[in-house]
Design a protein around this nucleic acid. Structure first.
Length: 371
DNA sequence: TTTGAGCGT
C-alpha cells in the first residue's frame, strides 16, 4: 500500500491502526509482535474504560513515516494469537471512514482465497486501504469479503475488470458495497424496466439523460424530477421497453461520471418497497439512539434524603454535559434514595462511573446498560 | 447463501 497522499500526519509521530485483534492481546503482545521493526515510539491496546475489556483494536506509533509504512506492509494480515490482524493507517475522521466511497464487496470466492489473496487480486487497480475475507471462528473463509480502495475510480476499475470473472474454480461477483438496509432484497429473477437515477447535476435535463441512456435500448419514458419552479431535484427515472436493456444500462452507468458527479443508478423501487426500506432504516436508527441513550444513562443509588436534583446534577456535571438528572420520589415527594443522570454521550457516562463508583461511601453507581 | 468494522493518550 502506498503512503496516502491526502492524509497529513504529524511530523513527530505516525500512527498505525491495528484491528481484528484477539481479545487476549495486551500491550505487551502487540509490542512483541512489532518489536522487529525500528522506529516504534509506543504501543497500546484500547480498552473499555469501565470494564477493561479489549476493544480488539490498538495503535502502534512510529517516529518515522517510512518505518510505519514498512511495518504496515509486513504486518498487515499476519497472525497474532491465532487471529489475522488488519493493519492500516490510523484514520481518525469518522466521516472519512463511514462514507462508503471506494468500498467494494466481493462474493462467491473460492475457499482457498484469504485476505492476502484478495488484496493481491485487487491492488493492481489502486491503493487498497483495507481488505478482508470474512471468516468463521476457525478461520475458514465464508466466501465473501471487502476491499476498501482509497479512491472511487480504483473501485470502479476493479468492478469493471473483475466482476463475473473466473478466479480459481469460481466466477466471482464484484460490486459496490451496500449497507444491508440500503440494499434491495435479493430478487434477481424479477424483471424490471424502470431505473432510478440520482446525483444529477442541476443542469442535467431530459435531453442529456436521453442521450446517455439511449445507447442501451429503446426508452419508453424518461423524466427528471423537478420542483414547482422547474428546478431539477437531482434525480429522475429512465424506463426502458425491455428488461435486458434496463439491466445493461444499470450495470454500465451506475458509478459512471456525468457532469461533475458520479451517477447512482438502480432499479426503481415500487412505492411500497421504498417505504419498507425507509421504515427499516428508521427502525435501525431508533435502535441505535436507544442503545446510545442507555449507555449514556447512569444509575445512582445510596443517595441521602436531603440531596436535590440540582445537587445531583452539579456533582455529575464534572464528567460531561448532562441532559437530565432526576431523583426518584414516592407519592409523598420523598426521595427514594436513587436516581438517574443522563449524559449527552456514552463516554461521559463511562467517565462518571469511573469517577464516582465506589469512591464515596454514600454513592453506588453503575451503568444502566449493565443492569 | 454470504453486503465488516469502525480510531486513543
Amino acid at each position: 500500500m502506498a503512503v496516502p497522499s491526502a492524509v497529513t500526519l504529524p511530523a513527530s509521530t505516525v500512527s498505525l491502526y491495528v484491528g481484528d485483534l484477539h481479545p487476549d492481546v495486551v500491550d505487551g503482545t502487540l509490542f512483541d509482535a512489532f518489536n522487529e521493526f525500528k522506529g516504534i515510539s509506543s504501543v497500546r491496546v484500547c480498552r473499555d474504560s469501565s470494564t477493561g475489556r479489549s476493544l480488539c483494536y490498538g495503535y502502534v506509533n512510529f517516529s518515522s513515516l517510512q518505518d510505519a509504512h514498512f511495518a504496515m506492509e509486513k504486518m498487515n494480515h499476519s497472525m497474532l494469537n491465532g487471529k489475522m490482524i488488519r493493519v492500516t493507517w490510523s484514520l481518525r475522521d469518522p466521516d472519512a471512514r463511514k462514507s462508503g466511497v471506494g468500498n467494494v464487496f466481493v462474493k462467491n470466492l473460492s475457499e482457498s482465497i484469504d485476505s492476502v489473496g484478495l488484496q493481491e487480486l485487487f491492488q493492481k487497480f489502486g491503493n487498497v486501504v483495507s481488505c478482508k475475507v470474512a471468516t468463521f471462528e476457525d478461520g475458514k473463509s465464508m466466501g465473501y469479503g471487502f476491499v476498501q480502495f482509497e479512491s472511487e475510480e480504483s473501485a470502479n476499475a476493479a468492478i469493471e475488470r473483475l466482476d463475473n470473472t473466473m478466479i480459481g474454480d469460481k466466477e466471482i461477483y464484484v460490486g459496490k458495497f451496500m449497507k444491508k438496509c440500503d440494499r434491495v432484497l435479493p430478487s434477481p429473477d424479477v424483471k424490471y424496466t424502470n431505473l432510478y437515477v440520482k446525483n444529477l447535476d442541476p443542469d442535467i435535463n431530459e435531453e442529456v439523460l436521453q442521450e446517455k441512456f439511449s445507447e442501451f435500448g429503446k426508452i419508453a419514458c424518461l423524466v427528471v424530477a423537478r420542483d414547482e419552479n422547474g428546478t431539477s431535484r437531482g434525480f429522475g427515472f429512465v424506463n426502458f421497453e425491455c428488461p435486458e436493456d434496463a439491466k445493461k444500462a444499470m450495470e454500465s452507468t451506475n458509478g459512471s461520471q456525468l457532469g461533475s458527479k458520479v451517477l447512482y443508478v438502480a432499479r426503481a423501487q415500487k412505492k411500497a418497497e421504498r417505504e419498507q426500506i425507509l421504515r427499516n432504516q428508521f427502525e435501525e436508527r431508533r435502535k441505535e439512539q436507544i442503545m446510545k441513550y442507555k449507555a449514556s444513562n447512569v444509575y445512582v443509588k445510596n443517595i441521602d434524603d436531603d440531596v436535590t436534583d440540582d445537587e445531583l446534577r452539579d456533582l455529575f456535571s464534572l464528567c460531561g454535559t448532562i441532559t437530565s438528572a432526576k431523583l426518584m420520589r414516592d407519592d409523598k415527594g420523598i426521595n427514594k434514595g436513587f436516581g438517574f443522570v443522563c449524559f449527552s454521550a456514552p463516554e461521559e457516562a463511562a467517565k462518571a462511573v469511573g469517577t464516582f463508583h465506589g469512591k464515596d461511601k454514600r454513592v453506588f453507581i453503575s451503568l444502566m446498560s449493565y443492569l
